[in-house]
Design a protein around this nucleic acid. Structure first.
Lengths: 186, 186
DNA sequence: AATTTCATGTAACCAGTTACATGATTCA
DNA sequence: TGAATCATGTAACTGGTTACATGAAATT
């Protein structure tokens, strides 16, 4: 299936990243989502098992059945070469303003997997892009605030400020991340 | 329809809040979503018109047809009394930890409408709850970091710190919001 | 006259939610 | 042996996405 470029959901990316770190069953993935602060993914079986099936159909993961012939086969999934390629491809995608606005969680998720999957250089590049886009969005929000200051009540204004501060914090975080990675063995 | 307590999507809440501020057409709502930093809602007609229909079926909004007999009737929607009640009800819901984790955007959206719809006292109460839950979640994330520090690589650790800083910022924002509202005429 | 903007909608699709269902294993 | 946990799944539903379709009004 050459459709490596197709879009995938955040949940699918999360699953791909998790089993890239270490192969595991659907239940293992559910446990991670249920017990760690990883993203905000539902650990519901109705989400995870179908997602695993889709990934398998895509040729990105392969399930190895543990107990042959049993009614409830336990399956341990691992990444195929194609799956590794697909994951890498998605982690290397440029950071766009749209991502920053509509899919910030997805970006942090990508980041969490980057060091292991695409290495230090690419991670640094990601952080630089992230910082740049966050800062540019802060500027545009500040312009909006100036323009609309008059017509906004206290809470609408505070809500807008929430956005500004949030993206400022994100830019700062990226800056600190850059330092941390630069300090890492070159 | 007495199902005022039923759950509604963030998009529906956003629409309800918008037309609470001033009645408008589906197109007006689309414009707001497309041109202001309000939430992160798609302005796609396939989302908004069906949502308006659902709200109308619920008895929460009423559309007044502008040009009788035409093929494409322009409709201006306004809140019904039931709609006002339903909106108020949802804005007054307590801030839970689950909201903070899974639906922070929804909370900010609620906040943006609060001053107008439920007034200063309720807004202040909301902000206090928000601050408390954000701070408590920061503490729990910090505990997680201590526990997992050893087993995490640089990027996973930074991703966790992103969460910590983000919620700290949220707590600070709420604190500032409280001051701003307390400064308002009592 | 042609293009843009205003304005409303539908149909096919898809992923996630909720609720239900089943069975194996471990431990009290 | 009964309860909790491990473990996998499905079916119905819902809401949002994408893409398409239509037409009126305003602008160039």
């Amino acid at each position: 299936m050459g459709e490596s470029g197709s879009k995938i959901s955040t949940l699918s990316l999360a699953i791909l990243g998790l089993i890239a770190q270490r192969p595991g069953s659907g239940y293992d993935i559910r446990k991670v989502f249920a017990t760690t602060p990883m993203g905000s993914f539902s650990s519901s079986p109705g989400a995870i098992y179908p997602a695993l099936k889709r990934l398998e159909k895509n040729g990105w993961v392969r399930g190895e059945i543990q107990n042959e012939g049993m009614l409830r086969p336990k399956q341990v999934f691992s990444l195929t070469d194609e799956g590794k390629r697909a994951l890498r491809e998605r982690l290397l995608l440029p950071v766009t303003r749209d991502d920053i606005i509509w899919n910030l969680d997805g970006l942090i998720l990508r980041f969490a997997f980057m060091e292991l999957v695409v290495g230090r250089e690419a991670t640094l590049q990601f952080l630089h892009q992230y910082q740049r886009e966050a800062e540019s969005y802060v500027e545009s929000l500040e312009r909006t605030r100036e323009e609309m200051k008059a017509q906004m009540n206290t809470s609408a204004n505070l809500a807008l400020e929430h956005g500004i501060e949030s993206y400022r914090m994100n830019a700062d975080w990226a800056k600190r991340g850059i330092k941390a990675f630069e300090a890492l063995k070159g």
